[in-house]
């Protein structure tokens, strides 16, 4: 019973946090107090849900917060004034008219971001697993940490490589990130 009350309070706090931030950010003047209350309600929701029902509780509260957002966004959409067609900037990601696709350069970028980043991310996963075991973590925790490191590491690498200013920097990022995996491979060969 206490747990159910906690989850209801947590869900209400999460949805309330969205409402308070909506109000705070719609004002002409920013209010630090209102911002703090909004974020504080999120924190309260996480604590209540987490202590009441662990990961399950946090998931339920987060779902209610997102549903509250969708309601507020729907309201914002309905009340939006009819605007004039705006002149948007073309954006840096769209090539200019006449600009060639440069397939060779893009293919190399693809090779760096997909197969190479995956290989490096697997190396990071292996290194995480090994380090966790050395640090005394349980076998299941070490395996799961390694398992999660692969997609998380790949995500970070893919974004970093794509956002790198030069090809040299891209290679540097990949080679630097590959060191833990290479170390694990060398250690494995010497066993």
């Amino acid at each position: 019973m206490l747990m159910q009350v906690q989850i209801m309070l947590a869900s209400s706090a999460a949805a309330g946090g969205v409402g308070v931030l909506r109000y705070a950010w719609a004002r002409k003047q920013r209010s630090q107090a209102l911002n703090a209350i909004g974020w504080g309600l999120f924190l309260l929701a996480a604590v209540l849900a987490g202590t009441g029902a662990g990961a399950w509780g946090v998931s339920v509260a987060a779902v209610w917060a997102m549903l509250a957002v969708l309601v507020l966004l729907g309201q914002a959409a309905l009340s939006a004034p009819l605007g004039k067609p705006a002149k948007l900037r073309p954006g840096p990601e769209a090539p200019a008219a006449g600009q060639v696709w440069d397939l060779g350069r893009r293919s190399l970028t693809f090779a760096l971001v997909v197969p190479l980043c995956l290989a490096v991310a697997i190396g990071l996963g292996l290194a995480t697993w090994r380090v966790m075991l050395l640090a005394g973590a349980g076998e299941a925790a070490a395996i799961v940490a390694g398992l999660f490191m692969v997609p998380l590491g790949w995500m970070l690498l893919a974004c970093s490589v794509l956002m790198a200013a030069s090809r040299k920097r891209q290679w540097g990022l990949l080679l630097g990130s590959a060191i833990p995996g290479i170390a694990v491979a060398i250690a494995g060969m010497s066993r």
Binding site: L21, R22, W25, A26, M66, V69, L70, L72, L73, A76, A77, L78, A80, P81, L82, G83, K84, P85, A86, K87, L88
Partner: peptide, 25 residues
Amino acid sequence: AFRLRARSGGGLALADWHNRLSVWT
């Protein structure tokens, strides 16, 4: 975070929907 020019033209509404929904979900 809640800026939604849902009835503006020229791609603005589409960009706002895309950005706001992405952030909050």
